[in-house]
Write a protein that binds this DNA or RNA. Structure first.
Lengths: 222, 222
DNA sequence: ACAGTTAATGGACACTGTCAACTTGACTGT
DNA sequence: ACAGTCAAGTTGACAGTGTCCATTAACTGT
């Protein structure tokens, strides 16, 4: 009979249980959806007892919140990189690459992406880090709006931009576009077509940065 | 000591337990999200034992599927009504009213709407009724695409349309637009602005029905 | 009258999140 | 050297969940 150890184990710096728990959680989330991420299953896969995770995370929602905050951070980073292209390249490039960044992120981490916009699963109000990171992503999209429409851009224009990329991402991971394509290449072609079409529409309708006051405005982007 | 009844109760045509269960489920879904809809809580509120619902629904997912199918039906109906406006009114009216129909539906039944696009919660493959109703809604959006872009409309144009309305709905019920407005009126103003802006963009960029072949096409809407 | 079906009942099981109490190793100041 | 504190776990328990199972009473067709 092998008596199990109790109490604190000997120092094992290579362990990093917290990191292991997060990695496992992200896997479960991407594989089986939010329902598959159970505290006990995470513990089981990480090789600890069902209570050990509670030492690092207050509750189940807290572990989700950590992933969500990281997700918004990563998204904001990708968007910033795409927006920065406006300097070396063109407005159109920045617009198209931002859209691709948003969609690529959703496709690469669908599990996390879904929870990022599900306040009933992970309530941002409880987690300041989530609010902050979400704000950074939002700021990057507002910046893109100004890149496209100039400094006088309206909040309505921001909504059109965000709705487009977000809707596209949602339809791709959960909606009818999830299974519409046979090959990955086919999907890429479609997405390029959508991005081109949207960019044409947006840039043709009197949007050309500050050099083009054009149509009547309503309210500035916050 | 009041001995509880067992077995089948006396006929009570006014009961309609199935309908009661569905109504209760929709309430729970809209109030506390999908996590709040538990088989036992539904049964409790409907005034039956925890097993009675299993007589009408195979499992929890099946009760969700019924609501989702009804949801897609209702959505398809609203979209059809909006699309039909093209006859008496204009293309622009049909486009704007379709967008409003989609958003209004999401706002009026947020709980159901969310599950409609969450295959990890309710897998459409399991429920033919969901697939069918979803197909009807999709067909209505494809029809709108042809109304706007003519019979040669591409699947990319359909994606742009769907992504716009769907993204907008998502951002309104769960995203940053959920709490961006103080008053209901404020939100309505914003939505009108978004709809106007989007319609301007779409109709200005060489989309005018079959009378305008215009830009190069790629692939027809299925 | 009687068998079969329908619409329920109550009990049990495994699983979940979380609370509480405990153990133990490592580090601290004296 | 040694008591005290903290970190990082441990085990055990509880209520709530979805679902399987056997049971039972009322209705239905023959």
């Amino acid at each position: 009979m092998t008596t199990r150890k109790r109490g604190r184990p000997k120092a094992d710096a290579d362990r990093d249980l917290r990191g292991e728990l997060l990695r496992t959680s992200r896997l479960l989330l991407d594989e089986g959806g939010v329902a598959a991420l159970s505290m006990r299953e995470v513990a089981r896969r990480a090789g600890c007892t069902h209570q050990a995770p509670y030492h690092y995370f207050e509750d189940r929602e807290s572990i989700l919140a950590t992933l969500v905050a990281d997700g918004f951070d990563a998204l904001a980073g990708r968007l910033k990189a795409a927006n920065d292209l406006v300097i070396q390249q063109s407005v159109r490039t920045a617009l198209i690459m931002s859209g691709r960044a948003y969609v690529d992120f959703a496709l690469s981490q669908p599990g996390v992406f879904r929870v990022m916009f599900r306040p009933d699963v992970c309530n941002p109000m409880r987690f300041p880090a989530v609010l902050e990171a979400g704000g950074r992503a939002r700021a990057e999209l507002d910046r893109l709006t100004r890149i496209v429409h100039g400094s006088q851009a309206t909040s309505e224009q921001a909504s059109i931009l965000w709705a487009h990329v977000h809707g596209l991402a949602c339809l791709l991971i959960d909606g009818p576009l999830a299974m519409a394509f046979g090959t990955e290449q086919e999907r890429q072609r479609h997405l390029e077509g959508v991005a081109d079409g949207f960019a044409d529409m947006l840039l043709a309708s009197g949007a050309g940065g500050s050099s083009n006051p054009g149509r009547r405005r309503k309210k500035d982007v916050s």
